[in-house]
């Protein structure tokens, strides 16, 4: 179980996020929702220790998460990656095997097998020799999904995986999420979409610097909560 206690991040005299506490159980997919600039990415980065945390604690399986980062897979926003980097699809996915391989070693034969399976699962095996620059946005996202699968992590974080992708990629991503859920993994997914895709999540966290609401769909996605988070009425947000 992932436990977050009173997490806060302070940027230039402002609270980016403050007083964040929640739990995420194995086998659960949590949707992290909120308006632009609400601190969604900052929250994920704070959990992983990628940005300096002002206060709070993060535990996984009752121990500090910081000491077990090997169990974590993180898929960054696509715009954080230099897609002109000279690297092939297969090598990117093999990066997911680096924590398991360890220093000074070459990837084991089983790692090659795992990478192949992951690429086949997302329908990218035939592109394995392509340089990543030559892929479409959706294909690039699938490569990073394959990297997260290959890592065999227990805890997975996705930062806006659905931005600018095709429908085929979207359905592959949700299909993979469902499989990871069956394998008792815990997933935290940042999303913008307040439409039909919400049915793919078990839990929700509605954020606007602080937690507006957390819990099931019925508990979180109420008119009042959405208005509190977005400052707009739910009819304007296109909620179904």
């Amino acid at each position: 179980m992932l436990e977050v206690y009173n997490l806060a991040v302070h940027y230039h005299n402002n609270w980016a996020i403050n007083d964040i506490s929640f739990c995420l159980q194995p086998g659960q997919i949590m949707g992290l929702l909120g308006p632009n600039g609400a601190g969604k990415s900052t929250l994920v980065k704070a959990i992983l220790g990628l940005v300096p945390v002002s206060k709070g604690a993060v535990k996984f399986a009752s121990r500090p998460l910081k000491r077990q980062l090997k169990k974590v897979a993180y898929v960054p926003q696509r715009n954080q990656i230099d897609w002109d980097y000279p690297i092939t699809v297969e090598k990117v996915v093999m990066m997911g095997r680096i924590p398991a391989t360890g220093w000074f070693r070459k990837p084991s034969p089983s790692s090659y097998h795992i990478v192949r399976n992951a690429l086949e699962k997302v329908g990218m095996w035939q592109y394995r020799q392509r340089q990543i620059r030559e892929l479409s946005g959706g294909q690039q996202q699938r490569v990073f999904l394959a990297r997260a699968i290959a890592q065999q992590a227990d805890l997975l974080f996705f930062d806006e995986p659905f931005n600018n992708i095709d429908l085929q990629t979207e359905s592959i991503i949700f299909q993979t999420f469902a499989e990871l859920k069956q394998q008792k993994k815990a997933l935290l997914v940042i999303s913008h979409d307040l439409g039909l895709t919400l049915n793919n999540y078990d839990r929700f966290l509605l954020l606007n610097h602080q937690i507006i609401a957390t819990g099931s769909k019925q508990e979180v996605l109420t008119k009042e909560n959405l208005q509190k988070a977005y400052g707009k009425f739910s009819s304007e947000l296109g909620i179904i």
């Binding site: 974590v72 898929v75 960054p76 954080q80 990117v92 990066m95 220093w103 974080f157």
Partner: peptide, 22 residues
Amino acid sequence: KLFYKELEFYTFDPIGAKACGL
């Protein structure tokens, strides 16, 4: 040669590399 795969990971995706503990 010794640190090739780690350096490749770090220079390609520094945040991802840090996130998994490098």
